[in-house]
Simulated assay, not measured.
Amino acid sequence: MKESEKAERKAREKEVRKKFRPIEQLKEEFEKLNMKIETDYEIMVKLISKFNSSASMLDEKVAALYDLEYYVHQVTRMPQ
């Protein structure tokens, strides 16, 4: 990378950091409000666990599959 490109990239990163807060900080703030933020990945892991659980009823497994399908499509559409 050229030095000018590196400088531009750092400037853009600095602007983004001014506009947005880190996810860890947001999680802490929502915890104070008794709200929990989960990433798509965390939700997908829970849905897979629910589907694989022998304690889950058939309707719960079907619902987990539908929800999982939604999240898989969300993740695959994310820009790289």
Rank of each mutant, 00 (worst) to 15 (best):
M1G: 15
M1V: 11
K2H: 13
K2W: 09
E3A: 14
S4D: 13
K6M: 06
K6A: 07
A7G: 03
E8K: 15
E8F: 05
R9M: 06
R9W: 05
K10F: 04
A11L: 12
R12K: 10
E13R: 13
K14F: 07
K14N: 14
K14E: 15
E15L: 12
E15V: 05
V16K: 12
V16I: 14
R17P: 03
R17T: 13
R17A: 15
K19Q: 09
F20K: 04
P22V: 00
P22S: 06
I23D: 05
I23Y: 05
Q25V: 09
Q25W: 04
Q25T: 13
K27R: 15
K27E: 03
E29Q: 12
E29Y: 03
F30K: 08
E31A: 10
K32G: 12
L33F: 01
N34Y: 01
M35A: 02
K36C: 03
I37L: 15
I37K: 11
T39S: 12
T39I: 02
T39N: 08
D40C: 08
D40W: 01
Y41D: 15
I43F: 03
M44S: 09
V45L: 14
K46G: 03
K46A: 14
I48Y: 12
S49W: 02
S49N: 15
K50Y: 00
K50T: 06
F51W: 08
N52A: 12
S53A: 11
S53Q: 08
S54A: 10
S56I: 04
M57S: 09
M57H: 11
L58I: 07
E60W: 06
E60C: 08
K61D: 00
A64C: 03
A64E: 00
L65V: 03
D67F: 01
D67H: 02
D67K: 11
D67E: 11
D67L: 05
L68P: 00
Y70W: 06
Y70G: 00
Y71W: 11
Y71H: 10
V72K: 04
H73E: 11
Q74P: 00
V75T: 12
T76P: 00
P79A: 07
P79H: 04
P79D: 10
